[in-house]
Amino acid sequence: MKQSILRNNKFRYLLNTLAVVLLYLLIIFLTSGGILNRYQSNMFIQIGYNIILAVSLNLSCGFLGQLPLGHAGFMSVGAYASALFSMAVDLPVYIEFPAALLIGGIAAGITGIIIGLPALRLRGDYLAIITLGFGEIIRVVILNLKFTGGAFGLRGIEKHSSISWVFLCTVITIFVIHTLLKSRHGRAVISIREDEIAAEASGISLTYYKTVTFAISAFFAGVAGGLYAHYLCILDPSNFGFMKSVEILVMVVLGGLGSIIGSVVSASVLTVIPELLRSFADYRMVIYSLLLIIVMIFKPSGLFGRYDFSLGPAIDSAFRRIRGLILRKGGAKNK
């Protein structure tokens, strides 16, 4: 009986909503209850936008099966677009900020389409290189434009990115990408990863789904960029170089290509680890890189492989395990 309730869709939605609310309350409790200091609280904001970056890259990398290396480029387009918008207008925060994020996302999404159309004709490593090239071009262009502040950076961005906003955006990103993947559109995307020729033979348009997925992935990177801009309040083009793209890719691969929960966990851990290692300042990047190599050698498919966590079935199996345990104990007693 328990099983049927937990597998019931409505009940699962309720359960997931409850879990998200509880997590939110926990974070608010930790950050405003004086348990964590200001510095530690801000980590949640960094974790949030890194999760959005990792999950959105996982969409085009782990699910679509392409290897783009220019995610930081999309992030920077979103960051600058949303920052320039919020600096130009003066509206109440609850209108201005979402609008700014949306504009950041759309600007990045359009960039994604412009880059995706030619780039997605290439495969594998060639796609990696061409997106890397586009990412660098975006950076150099921003560096040389007047209205972006060039090398001096863009200053005076209002600080809108609160923990609540970031949390909301992170939840929406995960929700949208998750539900999208569990539909005919998601199956089309995954079929392209599995076998392009068979996907085409099953009636799926490669160009359409590759481009759209790329654009969605870029859109969320743009939103993350917007959150980043309104958190740091200053944008410097050198923060969006090739290394930032690599950093996001590392989060995705370490968590497991094609595992959303993997991206969430690994983005969180990889945001926190360098901070934890701060007391070993000199050694921290060496340790970080060694960890990366070791994890890859011993767990090449990433920490979570393709596993995806789902609360309903997880509780379900936990219940069954507990029940099994009790039954076994009861059985032993009876003997």
Binding site: R184, I190, S191, E194, D195, I197, A198, A201, S202, R306
Partner: peptide, 15 residues
């Protein structure tokens, strides 16, 4: 040429 890492049911549903 199957979608190897996808369930049998999902293979058919993709089509």
């Amino acid at each position: 040429r199957l979608f190897k890492n996808v369930s049998v049911l999902e293979n058919v549903m993709t089509a």
